[in-house]
Amino acid sequence: MSVLNDIKLKAKELLEKGDVDVVIGYAKGTLNGKCTPYFVRNANDVENLVWENGCDINLANYLLKISDKAAVIAKGCDTRSIVNLVKENQLDRERVVIIGASCPSTESCQKCNHPDPVIADVFLQGETKVNNDDFSDLESFSKLPSEERRNYIYKEVSKCIRCYACRNVCPACYCKECFVEENLPAWIGKTTNTSDNMIFHLTRAIHVAGRCVGCGECVRACPMGVDLSILNRKIMKDVKELFNVESGLDLDTKLPLNDYKEDDPQYFLIGGEKCE
């Protein structure tokens, strides 16, 4: 039977047995090609669940918002976000039932190398895609003259209207009060001048360093088409090379930038080793 059918059966079972209060999944959206988060509280409503191209929103975010015992239908990136949230003590693993299935998306996230869930309580095998573990996009970008790279980042950043959709959909951005909202002191101006926008985007990129799982939700959420995934991917690559860690793959490895080891590479610190 189809993965969707298995999802529905499992969701129904969990709700009927009273194991969970809510199952978080996707329903058909109102726009073409877009699915929408769907909260099933009544077992009969599992019929509205879908699992298809367009189920791309990272649902891990919602686990922080609700306090009920929840099941979540999760693809690779959602489970990686969940892993990180558990590791950062934002989420109690016991409170969540993960119904894992391979990512149904057919077009987005070309560079995704983990379409399959990395943890799950119930793993429903889907059609696993070939792993695509390369950073060739970064290689070609880094070959561009610095002026061109700079212009690209400036161009993207200047489109931003500071609606914070990228931040609010990001499971790694869970701060109760974001630095942009603090006013004692105010770290950043409220304009959409490139300088203010730059502070926002660069700080966010650095703040999710080692925690970003590359789900791409920030890019999809942006109403203005800002795409700074190249920054996130560069940091991801650095973290992988420096610490030999890919974010959110298991519950045991500590998040590299949340941990300290004496032999940590630290060329990026002031007075640290010189980088090539």
Binding site: T36, P37, Y38, F39, N61, Y62, I66, I161, R162, C163, Y164, A165, R167, N168, V169, A221, P223
Partner: peptide, 13 residues
């Protein structure tokens, strides 16, 4: 509001 992430897209646009 269950699925709302409280961003400013709707209001800014």
């Amino acid at each position: 509001q269950e699925k709302c992430v409280n961003c400013g897209v709707c209001t800014f646009l």
